[in-house]
Simulated scan of single mutants.
Amino acid sequence: MMIQIFNILKLTSLVLDACEESFIAAQDKVAKASAKHFADTGLMAMLCRHDRVLWVVNLTSPGEKQFYAYALIERLFAELPKDWHIGVLYDLAGQIQRSMIKWGFLPNLLPRMKFAVSVFHAFGHQWPCQLRGHPRKIEGYGLTDGEGCERYYCI
């Protein structure tokens, strides 16, 4: 089973594990806002290709839990025709894809997705992840940088 996962991802578990450990946002122990004082500890938004907000969810626990991303992806596919495919640009795209394959999350949607790491965040990844997940190196992304969520702010 594990060999199949890494053949699909084309990265070793060592590379994926090192990337996972290097990102502060994904760590449960690091909170940017105290859950003791605030009901919500952050926001996660899904934007379209043109950086327009589609949906926003309130984060209610420290770290960017994967289930928030899965909920947004599932919501998006509920609105799309059944034959559409999408590109998913996310800071931790490799981890999302890895979990979907390993644990069977959203199995009917996985074949309709192509994963890449947002341009700015690609430089925080291990070099194999940069080569495999950079949107400039994956057909279909064009000049999309995936950083709209970083520029998005609530008025």
Rank of each mutant, 00 (worst) to 15 (best):
T12R: 11
F38K: 11
E64P: 00
L92T: 10
R151A: 11
E74P: 00
V53T: 06
I3V: 12
E79Y: 00
S99A: 15
I3W: 05
A122Q: 01
A25E: 15
R75A: 13
L54T: 02
S99C: 14
A69F: 03
L16R: 07
W127V: 15
E147P: 01
S118D: 14
Q4K: 12
P62C: 04
Q27I: 01
M46D: 02
V15L: 08
S118P: 03
Q66A: 13
I3D: 09
E139I: 10
L76H: 00
A26S: 14
L54R: 07
S99R: 14
E150H: 13
A35F: 07
L92E: 05
Q97A: 09
S22W: 00
L109F: 02
Q130V: 13
Y141K: 06
R151G: 04
K32W: 11
V88Y: 04
N58K: 06
M113H: 04
G146W: 01
Y68T: 06
K36C: 09
F123K: 11
T60L: 04
L143A: 10
K36Q: 12
A71S: 11
F115Y: 04
R49P: 04
L143H: 03
S61W: 00
L109I: 06
F120S: 13
D145H: 04
I24S: 14
M44F: 02
K82Y: 07
F120C: 05
C154T: 13
R98H: 15
R136S: 15
K137W: 09
P135A: 07
W55T: 06
F123C: 06
R136F: 12
I96D: 12
S118N: 11
E64W: 04
